[in-house]
């Protein structure tokens, strides 16, 4: 199955790289938005922060929010393949059937990791975002968030009945989750009840992990001063498993009607 999934992922990569608009949206738009927000919010927000925390928040929030948009668009190619008949053609081959969803997961995860790397390296180069101070924790968080966002994209893409439905629903849900999850403004400045509501979204756990690393210099485990990222990552992995399970169920029910 892995071999077939890699063949399918290579196909999706080729199609993505030939779509210049998609490439621009995936890589340039998050950087532009993070630059604008980072510039507007730049400067320390308190002595407890280790670096230019406004920019850190801007790059974290773009890493979280824009990645979800990009990965929903990427996973949404399933809808196009279904309407164009290529999905059935793949299903008619002996090896592709079970690998189709796995291949989408592989390519969306790979794209996510590249996008996160580009975004944070840009932040480090031009906004002093402290990505190298705890590189292992940040890398782990990027990998886990790439998995969660990919599974989320697949769940949305397989739950929607049409591409238009996918675009409408995903925009609404991503913006809603980003607002309550702390991607628009730090949850720490919101009322307690708002912070609790936010915890129902993967965005809040991802933002918590990025904040703990980039604002407080946290590592995997808790210290006397600051909590670590182990709990947020564990919750994100759990959410990832649930989302991928849902994506698999939706895919079987709606894309392989038998």
């Amino acid at each position: 199955m892995l071999h077939s999934a890699l063949i399918l992922a290579r196909k999706d990569l080729r199609l993505f790289l030939r779509d210049r608009t998609a490439v621009m949206l995936a890589f340039l738009l998050p950087i532009v938005l993070a630059t604008v927000m980072g510039t507007a919010m730049g400067g320390p927000m308190g002595k407890m922060m280790v670096a230019s925390s406004g920019a850190s928040h801007a790059f974290s929030s773009m890493a979280v929010m824009m990645l979800m948009f990009n990965l929903v668009a990427s996973a949404g190619t399933l809808q196009e393949e279904r309407s164009e008949g290529t999905l059935d053609r793949l299903r008619l081959t002996p090896s592709a059937g079970p690998a189709i969803l796995f291949g989408k997961l592989l390519i969306t995860m790979a794209m996510a990791l590249v996008q996160l790397a580009v975004l944070f390296l840009f932040g480090a180069a031009f906004f002093d975002v402290p990505v190298f101070e705890n590189a292992a924790a940040l890398t782990a968080t990027c990998i886990v968030w790439a998995m969660t966002a990919s599974a989320l994209g697949l769940a949305f893409a397989t739950a929607a009945r049409t591409r238009k439905q996918l675009e409408g629903l995903s925009t609404l849900l991503i913006l809603g989750m980003s607002a309550v999850g702390g991607a628009w403004f730090p949850r720490e400045i919101a009322p307690a009840w708002f912070q609790k509501v936010g915890l129902a979204t993967p965005v809040a756990w991802a933002m918590d992990a990025f904040h703990r690393i980039l604002w407080f210099g946290s590592g995997f485990t808790d210290t006397a001063e600051h909590p670590g990222i182990a709990v947020p990552l564990a919750v994100l992995l759990l959410i990832t498993a649930v989302l991928f399970f849902l994506a698999h169920r939706f895919y079987r029910a709606r894309f392989t009607v038998r």
Binding site: K11, R14, L15, R18, D19, E84, G85, T86, D88, R89, L92
Partner: peptide, 12 residues
């Protein structure tokens, strides 16, 4: 199976 629709990847 030769499908009724043109089931090919236009970008490839």
């Amino acid at each position: 199976v030769v499908p009724q629709d043109i089931a090919l990847y236009g970008g490839l």
